[in-house]
Design a protein around this nucleic acid. Structure first.
Lengths: 347, 347
DNA sequence: TATATCCTCGTAAACGTTTACGGGGGCAGC
DNA sequence: GCTGCCCCCGTAAACGTTTACGAGGATATA
């Protein structure tokens, strides 16, 4: 005798009543409910997930898909870890469990997702690192499962996403640099097909245009989003015939490698070349000269992602009304010395 | 009409035959099997996980539990990400899915695990960052679920674990340092109750004793396993009345912060103080002076962990015979300049 | 006292699979 | 032609829950 049956037998009541008592249904005597609850902890009863999911038709599990190429393993992906804290703080309030679904580099992400969703392992999905023309969002949209992607998608505009404010970042960075009469401003872009590369590039172009500066394809440097990528980007820049005087980096760890390559050439950020980093990180916070970059609370972002997802799920819409399905997450400018604005280096 | 029923109806055969065909059972005509397989991909059929798990009594899912405190979010925990790649390469061969179970800092890890296992969400568990007197291993042992912990446990010796070779690391580090007549060798230990702190400390003591050196509690520095922890550890060492001449670090990112604090004091690793790092990482690889540390293939470690886990599961024991349940994972010495062995700095 | 109402609980069906069991039909051997 | 065997397939039960339905008893109302 196992499961709820054992509980029922132990209490000499029917399994129906036990179930109702545990699930907080109204038509059960408060006294028996207490007895059931007590017996449940005494016997260590936990409802079987398979049975419950089968009957309910839902799993109470939210999936967060990430990719685990050796590439991302080499770079430290604390982005996702930070996010999870915020996600769970919201999901836990609704007895939803978060599981992380790591898609290995061996498998096609589309297939992987199809398997997970097709088997009904999760009630909702959170996508990360949205690709350009990401087939995953098409699939999820067709399969009618609630989902949200972190990183805007270019596939239609009906499904929800939250993305970082790349326009704001590019605008503020270019503004600062142009103020110092920089006009050869380089930008780094991931070599992969991740969508943020396209978005950042567009934002960069728009910002240049706003200042009447021409767009020079030479100044777009494709570099891996890792420390080594930053190193190689700097290397490439230093060897350019007409060296850019400023650069905008796209990934937090790149700044470390970029600085390293500069110091090897006895150059310094801020004095020899203006550097604007992307996300502030524990590592970047101690660079010298201090890095101008953008701050972001991963936990708050996670909370927003979770709430936006819940807003698309009928059973939670009452608590999280569906607002704008597309959300641009602001990032706060952290002024440093690396782009050496005259006004930013009074100390 | 949904699921396997729809498939059966579409083919005009019974659901039993469809199930047998899909699961590769012998008593089904090869021709009908082909038709079933074709129809399955045509209709995009995927077996419902809940139904299957309920009937089979197993989920074909392996859980990897990690903890997501803001602490680990701040430090970049690429350790786990690297591990997953190896885990999946083994698990995928047996149609097992890996899911990551992030336990937030809000929840007690014991409760969390109890919920996951009690609900029968997974067939097996992989624990990380084993604590001293870890209640989770007791619970898992009692609940008879196959599991393995990454990080040795002090609770009995019947359940399997794989741990890094802290003894080997401590021995080789102390050997090198003593060869240069260092006799005040400091060590950093995490401030938490994680078991590797105890293990590393013991290994350090044993290594000292082997060289006839006294153990001085003053030389045990409790520092967070983060870049900032390394910074503060250096700070603390520099302010000690009788400054140690050498130090062994425990976490890869600590070296970065340690170097930073040294350079602020115009000191250098290798010449002013001997530094032995722990795990080689993308960041540490570019430190200057180069860091003496220990190399480790996370992917291979993941493979070993997965295989050891499968060895404890009856249905896979044929393929992964149960060997030694406790495994010490070797780490390869990477000679650098930071501990400045005369023989190591010829270039 | 008869009837209606409410509270509480038991019964049984359903969710989508897998699998033990048995049956029908074809074929070989006598 | 009868028996036995084998191949293939359909039937139905089971896995552990949840929940619609209805029954029974107690209480209130007329």
């Amino acid at each position: 005798m196992k499961g709820i049956r054992r509980l029922a037998q132990h209490l000499n009541i029917s399994i129906g009543t036990v179930s109702r008592a545990l699930n907080g249904k109204p038509d059960v005597n408060e006294d028996t409910r207490r007895r059931v609850l007590a017996a449940a902890v005494e016997l260590g009863y936990m409802p079987n997930q398979a049975g419950r999911a089968l009957r309910r038709g839902s799993t109470s599990v939210i999936g967060l898909m990430i990719e685990t190429s050796p590439e991302t393993a080499a770079n430290s992906d604390n982005f996702v870890v930070g996010l999870m804290d915020g996600l769970q703080s919201v999901l836990a309030r609704h007895e939803l469990d978060l599981i992380v679904l790591p898609c290995s580099s061996d498998e096609d992400p589309g297939n992987y997702l199809q398997r997970i969703v097709g088997r009904r392992l999760v009630d909702g999905m959170i996508l990360t690192s949205t690709q350009h023309r990401d087939t995953r969002v098409d699939f999820l949209a067709r399969s009618k499962i609630p989902f949200i992607s972190l990183g805007r998608s270019d596939a239609g505009d009906t499904h929800p996403w939250i993305d970082l404010d790349f326009e704001g970042v590019a605008n503020r960075a270019v503004d600062r640099l142009v103020t110092q009469s920089h006009h050869r401003i380089a930008i780094t872009i991931p070599p992969t097909d991740i969508n943020l590369g396209y978005v950042f590039l567009d934002a960069y172009k728009a910002a240049l245009e706003r200042h009447g500066l021409p767009f020079d394809p030479e100044l777009v440097i494709r570099a891996k989003t890792s420390e080594q990528g930053g190193y190689l980007a700097a290397d490439q820049m230093l060897n350019m015939p007409e060296r850019p005087t400023a650069v905008m980096l796209i990934y937090e760890l790149m700044a470390i490698g970029f600085y390293r390559r500069l110091s090897e050439a006895s150059l310094q950020a801020g004095t020899d070349i203006a550097v604007v980093g992307f996300r502030e990180s524990p590592q970047s916070r101690f660079l010298s000269p201090t890095l101008t970059c953008f701050r972001l609370s991963l936990r708050d972002l996670g909370i927003a992602v979770a709430e936006s997802l819940l807003a698309t799920m009928p059973e939670y819409q009452a608590q999280y009304p569906l607002g704008e399905v597309h959300m641009i997450w602001p990032m706060e400018l952290v002024e440093g010395e690396s782009d050496a604005l005259p006004t930013a280096a009074p100390t």
